[in-house]
Nucleic acid binder design. Structure first.
Length: 279
DNA sequence: CTGCGGTCCTGAAGGC
DNA sequence: TGCCTTCAGGACCGCA
């Protein structure tokens, strides 16, 4: 599912594709997934593409912000030739490599006939047009404000298990289920450990693992496992799934000590860990 | 404040 | 082969 590394990979790609382009019109195929008036963006130039946590925002001239949340199954594709948009690679979980297809919910058409496609099989994602950037106190994992001190202060007093706590986006934003599982393996901390039971050393290990694993995800351009919809805007796959530590590796040997990776359900989410090295 | 369960949604996978 | 049920889950909301 799209988490920080996937959204950051998309951002870097779209920044190269879109900055300077002028929107012709937005074609909304699923109305419930577009918040705001799509007509407002006609003629606006894209000046930047930014990200905070899992939220991607196209910055437009005249203080307009077109934000995109991919939620579980959102997919962004970009074609220079929007009149004949056929992608080379298989588009996961869609019926056709030609855009738009049955999963396409919104299309942003540009003056030069290039086009951006927002596909979303399960219709949980959305696009929102706003005249101000979303204000949030939450801190992105890659931002300078995400320090060890901030991390300790925001999580160390909670009675919740560390794994679901890291999924909450209101204090730290960007972590989803894949990287949550893998970073706790990296930190050698068991996912069910209560946050307020963690030692200073363990908190520091989780902090360091968070930055390391998220950066590793970006290095491999995100995770495109077979049950995921995520691809880059040019339809290429990411390769982090070839580097999973524990995620979806239940029954397989731990990369550190060969113990068998286990799967449990924790706060309603699939949770993977090594019973030997994660304490 | 916390924490739980329901909701949204659809394709894939499993059972018989 | 085919129909039916179950499952996956990020964010949000209502309720105890």
């Amino acid at each position: 599912m799209p988490e920080l590394p996937e959204v950051e990979t998309i951002r870097r790609s779209l920044r190269d594709d879109l900055v300077g382009k002028v929107i012709d019109h937005v074609e909304v195929l699923e109305f419930k997934q577009f918040k705001g008036d799509p007509k407002q963006v006609a003629g606006k130039k894209i000046t930047d593409v930014i990200r905070k946590g899992k939220m991607l925002t196209l910055v437009l001239e005249d203080s307009l912000f077109l934000s995109i949340h991919l939620m579980l199954t959102g997919q962004i594709l970009f074609a220079e030739d929007g009149k004949n948009a056929i992608f080379k690679n298989i588009i996961p979980h869609t019926n056709s490599n030609k855009m738009p297809n049955t999963s396409t919910r919104i299309v942003v058409h540009f003056k030069d006939t290039s086009a951006l496609y927002f596909n979303d099989q399960r219709k949980f994602g959305w696009m929102k047009l706003s005249d101000k950037i979303e204000e949030t106190k939450s801190v992105d994992v890659l931002s300078p404000e995400f320090t060890l001190e901030y991390f300790k202060k925001s999580i160390s007093s909670s009675k919740k298990p560390i794994k679901p706590l890291l999924l909450e986006q209101d204090k730290i934003t960007g972590i989803g289920n894949i990287y949550d599982n893998d970073l706790l393996w990296e930190a050698k901390v068991h996912p069910t450990r209560k946050a307020n039971s963690l030692s200073n050393e363990e908190l520091e290990a989780i902090y360091n693992a968070t930055v390391k694993i998220i950066q590793e995800g970006i290095k491999y351009k995100g995770s495109s496992a077979k049950d995921e919809m995520y691809v880059l805007p040019n339809s290429e796959k990411g390769s982090y799934q070839e580097h999973f530590k524990v995620y979806h590796r239940n029954g397989q040997p731990c990369l550190r000590d060969k113990a068998t990776i286990e799967r449990i359900e924790l706060a309603g989410r699939g949770t993977f860990f090594c019973p030997k090295c994660q304490k």
